[in-house]
């Protein structure tokens, strides 16, 4: 089995190259780019300056060819695509993700400043979903076809079908500001006077600000995990070994919580491998609604503004975490299910 995991780790390399190369090529061919953006900015500037005089907006203003050439060299576009990719890859190997075109800071710094938001959103969401969905799924399985089962299904599927940002807007109208109840702040990741607060106030302030965003971020994923838990447990309760356990004279509690639950959590536990991915968690729309400067927002704007180093940086970190997370998932799977042998 060790051989299997070594093989899987080795496979990360070609997969990673495949992913990044594909994105690199696509970026090369999509219209627009940092140079075009610079040109636009230049034209806008010229147009605004000359606006009072001629009103020829965006008309004849052209960058001198030498300056254009200078720009190309600055962004590295004077070299062919494969050279650029290899240079970029070599830099990545040396842990250098480049410098953001927009922020003019190292990409790593730009991404890193968003980690707290992501980890907060991701981790609370992750913990909450497991803490809520597993007990809820177990209850639903035990009381299969009961009123409680029906009502809770209704609620989780309602959450599943409402987009998080739409719910966010609704929640803000109801609980944020003052139209109805002024309970939560209108937005922001933290209280603005963060530096001045004591530890206790920081915790309260943080929770106060993040409550609504986390609810919106989570609401869609509750359904999947809850129903997965329920169905998995129901299926296991119908297995022969459960009948054996009852025939041995075990209590219902023991049969469900010791014998069946362990088996039914196997498919859920494999999701734990993706826990690393939490540092990149984010949702552009929810961050927009709540005015939070998080990873989703950064990713979105980096593409809009053709900030290639940032976009590729997020891709590098994200794909590596995902690939390693998948292997970790398989390891967890093999660890908790004695029947699994990877070869």
């Amino acid at each position: 089995m060790t051989g299997y995991f070594i093989r899987r780790l080795l496979l990360v390399v070609p997969t990673f190259i495949g992913i990044t190369l594909a994105v690199f090529v696509v970026m090369h061919f999509v219209p627009g780019g940092p140079i075009e953006r610079q040109l636009m900015a230049y034209k806008m500037a010229v147009a605004t300056e000359g606006g009072a005089g001629g009103g020829m907006i965006g008309g004849g203003a052209e960058l001198p060819p030498a300056a254009l050439e200078e720009l190309r060299r600055f962004y590295g576009f004077d070299k062919p695509l494969h050279t650029r990719y290899l240079t970029w890859l070599w830099n990545v190997v040396r842990l250098d993700l480049g410098t953001s075109y927009v922020y003019q800071d190292p990409v790593w710094e730009v991404i890193r400043t968003r980690f707290p938001v992501s980890i907060f959103l991701g981790l609370t969401g992750f913990l909450l979903s497991y803490l809520v969905c597993i007990p809820l799924g177990v209850l639903k399985a035990i009381h299969h076809h009961s009123k409680f089962d029906f009502l809770s299904s209704f609620v989780v599927f309602l959450g599943y079908s409402v987009p998080g940002w739409a719910l966010g807007t609704a929640l803000l109208v109801l609980f944020g500001g003052g139209s109805f109840w002024n309970v939560f702040p209108l937005g922001g990741f933290r209280p603005s006077n963060w530096e001045l607060l004591s530890i206790g106030e920081k915790i309260v302030g943080q929770l106060h600000h993040m409550f609504l965003p986390v609810v919106c971020y989570m609401v869609g994923s509750f359904a999947t995990l809850t129903i997965l838990t329920k169905n998995s447990l129901l299926e296991n309760l119908g297995q022969d070994y459960v009948r054996t356990a009852f025939a041995k004279g075990l209590s219902e509690r023991r049969v469900i919580f010791v014998h069946s639950l362990r088996n039914s959590l196997i498919p859920l536990a494999t999701g734990l491998g993706q826990v690393f991915g939490l540092v990149l968690a984010g949702s552009f729309l929810i961050e927009r609604v709540f005015n939070i400067d998080g990873m989703g927002y950064l990713g979105y704007t980096s593409i809009l503004q053709r900030d290639y180093p940032v976009a590729l940086g997020i891709l590098v970190i994200g794909s590596l975490l995902m690939l390693v997370g998948n292997i970790l998932s398989d390891m967890i799977y093999a660890a908790i299910d004695p029947r699994i042998r990877f070869r």
């Binding site: 022969d240 070994y241 054996t244 041995k248 014998h259 088996n263 908790i336 029947r339």
Partner: peptide
């Protein structure tokens, strides 16, 4: 009574034992 006074074995030895214990 189950297991102590009256015990039972089943047809499918493949599935009648808990696979993870």
């Amino acid at each position: 009574i189950r297991g102590k006074e009256i015990s039972m074995i089943f047809q499918e030895p493949m599935t009648s034992l808990n696979p993870v214990f």
